[in-house]
Amino acid sequence: MKTLVLGLGNPILSDDGVGIQVAHEVANQLNNPQVTVAETSAAGLSLLDSIVGYDKVIIIDAIQTKEGNTGQIYRMGTEDFSLTKHFSSPHQVNLVTALELGKMLNLAMPQEITIFAVEAKDITNFSEKCTPKVEQAIPEVVKMVLQELNE
């Protein structure tokens, strides 16, 4: 099974870079030729381009919810996106739409997509570092991603 672990975010925008940091750490700890670990700051259609051709995709990103606690980790499946429609993109094609488009055009879409999202505090100030509580969550998310890969 071809699997992709994709860290999503902006590595110089504080907590927005958490997905990319997790992906780096997963790449360091993983030794499995079936799994590709990548990072991207793009979303929407570019995100679609990235995931086409994989059977299983694990995405790691930052999230901001109304009453979430900084550093909180969420595991979500595609059914959650259709409820929340939260996956946005710089070109306003959210992940749900991108996936529907892929199906419509008969592209080789992944059968399974899982998202690990970390509640972010700061996503507007430029910094290469996450805020402390998000930083602390990174090893836990890495563990969860590795577990997911072993299932």
Binding site: N10, D16, Q64, K85, S89, P90, Q92
Partner: peptide, 12 residues
């Protein structure tokens, strides 16, 4: 705008 930010739920 803050297009580099696409943390959820940034619905643009």
């Amino acid at each position: 705008m803050s297009c580099a930010t696409h943390a959820l739920p940034g619905q643009l």
